[in-house]
Amino acid sequence: MRTRPVLIYDGDCAFCTSSVRFAERRLRPRCEISPWQFADLDVLGVTQERAEYELLWVTPAGAVHGGVQAVAKLLQDAGRGWVVPGVLLSLPPFRWIAHGVYRLVANNRERMPGGTPACALPADRRSGTRAPSGHAE
């Protein structure tokens, strides 16, 4: 059984990867971090479709938080001064506003600094990705 949460991100997206590396350097979270392309999604209880759609935070008990709530959990896990913004992101109306901003960024990540055209491609057309569970590779 896992004892630490897992942060799942799109490792084929340069913007996502840069964001996670920034979080590793600045926040120093106490979680495992893995691109969905190399994670055992079945064991984590996550579908590939959801992992492609949003950042995911999977607790040791198996609860899955996505998008801005995954960011909130990451901030809370980092401790120190990051807890307050993490808690605020979990509360209305901050949660609602942050969700809108998250979706705007996620839907346009290929246009963000560090993003590449590959970020906009469906997962089955990106290099180095695996076929969805139940599909032939």
Rank of each mutant, 00 (worst) to 15 (best):
V46A: 13
V71M: 06
A72C: 03
K73P: 00
V84Q: 07
V83N: 07
L89K: 09
E52G: 12
E54W: 05
E52F: 05
A78C: 08
V83C: 11
F94M: 11
H65C: 09
L74W: 02
A70P: 06
W36S: 01
A63P: 00
P93H: 14
P60H: 06
E54D: 14
W82P: 01
L91H: 04
F38L: 13
P93D: 13
I33A: 04
L55G: 02
V58G: 00
G81E: 02
V84R: 14
G79A: 08
P92T: 09
G66V: 08
L91W: 08
C31Q: 03
E52V: 12
E32Q: 10
C31W: 10
V64A: 12
Q76H: 04
V58F: 02
V68L: 01
V46T: 13
S90N: 14
S90F: 01
V58Y: 01
F94N: 00
V83L: 13
P92N: 07
S90G: 15
Y53C: 03
E49A: 15
L75T: 04
E54N: 10
A63R: 10
V46C: 15
V83E: 11
V58T: 03
S34E: 03
E32D: 14
T59L: 05
L75Y: 08
Q37G: 01
V64S: 09
S90L: 09
F38K: 12
A72E: 02
E52P: 01
